[in-house]
């Protein structure tokens, strides 16, 4: 019964490279896309790298002696990377222990947890408000995610990260489960209209307000990485069912899958940017209300899945 875990060196390399390089690049694309939509020239594609480079080069101010304040960004980043390591890249999974999706989401949620605790460690109401808004987002998105997993448990009979895309059948409820997953991932990523925790014009950056210099760089990087990880999960879930036949066959198959995953991510990010550009920010109570409504709807979907559709 006991399956030991495996560590794929190749996977780690691919993972590290992708997660280390891709997030700022994708952000750059998004900024460019947004700028075009807004009749602007926009910054260069590599602008986010420049920003991060500048931030990494600056010292940070320390508004509190609380250790959490300094530890939190690193923990957030490490959690985002750890979550990335649980995902398959092509046929390679960097760190595989039959990758339970619940574990994956929890590890990813640790990014938020770290940020929130960091935000609360300071005596600053803006940052505190940001922290508790972030928490409320987690609170309201979590059940939707839970329902999506429930549907997978019904339809695919497994909650293993790598097995769900292989086993999930095409059915009415799974399609809806995918939609729920996409919605949850989008909201969790904090894209507009869900950028409530940072809300620059309201609470001056919220969770980020006290951070500066390198710590801010690490934190922003962690947030970008988390977005990529969620997107990668979605792209995996879309790619592998389509490429089931070749997904696990040989190196070539692996590379093909990896390429498709990557392309999907690259295509999806500008779409997200467009979505961001055309939306205003929700107020937290409105976001929670929306999420609650979707959760209640999703329960119907779960019932549908239980019935067998």
């Amino acid at each position: 019964m006991m399956k030991t875990m495996s560590i794929s060196v190749l996977g780690i390399i691919v993972g590290v490279v992708l997660v280390a390089i891709l997030p700022p690049f994708l952000d750059g694309i998004a900024r460019k896309v947004k700028a075009r939509i807004q009749y602007r020239v926009g910054p260069p594609i590599l602008q986010t790298y420049y920003d991060l480079q500048k931030l990494f080069g600056l010292p940070s101010l320390r508004p509190t002696e609380n250790k959490w304040f300094r530890v939190a960004p690193y923990l957030a980043l490490a959690s985002a990377f750890s979550a990335a390591f649980l995902l398959p890249y092509g046929k390679w999974v960097p760190v595989k222990f039959s990758g339970d999706i619940v574990v994956f989401f929890y590890v990813l949620a640790m990014v938020s947890v770290a940020i929130i605790i960091g935000a609360f460690s300071t005596q600053n109401a803006h940052s505190n408000i940001g922290g508790h808004r972030e928490m409320m987002m987690v609170l309201s998105v979590e059940p939707i995610l839970g329902v999506a997993l429930g549907i997978f448990a019904f339809k695919a009979g497994t909650l293993s990260l790598s097995a769900i895309p292989l086993k999930v059948p095409a059915s009415f409820s799974t399609v809806l489960a995918y939609l729920l997953l996409i919605y949850a991932a989008y909201a969790e990523s904090g894209f507009v209209p869900f950028d409530i925790a940072e809300a620059e014009t309201e609470i001056a950056g919220g969770v980020l307000v006290e951070y500066s210099g390198r710590l801010l760089g690490v934190l922003e990087y962690a947030i970008l990485a988390k977005r990529l990880v969620l997107l990668w999960l979605l792209s995996t879930f879309l790619t592998i069912p389509i490429l089931r036949g070749i997904a696990l066959t040989g190196v070539v198959g692996g590379i093909v899958v990896l390429a498709v995953q990557l392309i999907l991510v690259l295509v999806a990010y500008p779409l997200i940017a467009a979505l961001e550009a055309t939306n205003a920010r929700y107020r937290i109570d409105q976001a929670v209300a929306l999420n609650t409504r979707i959760f209640l709807l999703s329960l119907v979907v779960l019932a549908v899945a239980a019935v067998g559709w």
Binding site: P59, S60, L61, P63, R70, Y74, A78, F97, V103, N124
Partner: peptide
């Protein structure tokens, strides 16, 4: 394993990008 991965990454980041948070400041009001 998760602890190791997380720990290694955490320490790596901490070492690679040490926070030079020397300057103390009051929270931004």
């Amino acid at each position: 394993l998760l602890a190791i991965v997380l720990g290694v990454l955490f320490i790596a980041f901490l070492l690679f990008l040490p926070a030079r948070a020397k300057e103390t400041a009051k929270p931004w009001d």
